[in-house]
């Protein structure tokens, strides 16, 4: 079945046993994103520390409701960005976005994306791209807000 290129083992594993799930304290920002086409939702918190190039995403915690792709994607994202610098987290976000919008043409950078390369197959199913992006778009939004708020705190 061709659909197995979509539902890779790694994706199914993350779906069944999500990493980093649950909303945790402390945090700087909380965002809520929905996928208006299917009603999937995620509430996501980030905790930021440090400043400038050393600004680090200390934690990403989330609660979400949705399909296997959106759940697995948030789990893989947690592994990739928690504990990394904000720059690296945003680079991963951009690379993931690029791959998702490539219709399956882009060769994902495994250095940057790790397990998230498994989502390359999702890019061939345009209706599912938004599912895969739900957590990542929430992350981008939360990190941007948190970084601004955090820098203002330092001033």
């Amino acid at each position: 079945m061709q659909v197995e290129s979509l539902y890779q083992e790694i994706i199914l594993d993350h779906y069944k046993r999500p990493h980093g799930r649950g909303l945790r304290e402390p945090f700087n920002t909380e965002v809520h994103h929905v996928n208006p086409t299917c009603g999937d939702e995620i509430t996501l918190r980030v905790l930021i520390s440090g400043f400038g190039d050393d600004m680090v995403v200390e934690d990403v915690s989330y609660e979400s409701q949705g399909c296997s792709i959106s759940q697995a994607s948030a789990s893989v994202m947690f592994d990739l960005v928690a504990g990394e610098t904000v720059d690296d987290a945003l680079r991963a976000q951009e690379e993931f976005l690029h791959v998702m919008h490539s219709r399956g043409e882009a060769e994902p950078d495994e250095e940057i994306l790790g397990d998230a390369v498994a989502f390359q197959g999702v890019a061939k199913y345009p209706a599912r791209v938004k599912c895969a992006l739900l957590g990542w778009m929430a992350l981008k939004d939360a990190v941007a807000q948190a970084a601004t708020a955090h820098e203002e705190d330092l001033d």
């Binding site: 079945m1 659909v3 299917c38 399909c67 792709i69 599912c131």
Partner: peptide, 20 residues
């Protein structure tokens, strides 16, 4: 999840609607 139901049905050639 309905999306995952629809995707398997789609792989069998069955077009249904999923969502709200």
């Amino acid at each position: 999840h309905p999306h995952d139901v629809g995707q398997i049905l789609d792989s069998l050639g069955i077009a249904v609607r999923v969502g709200h």
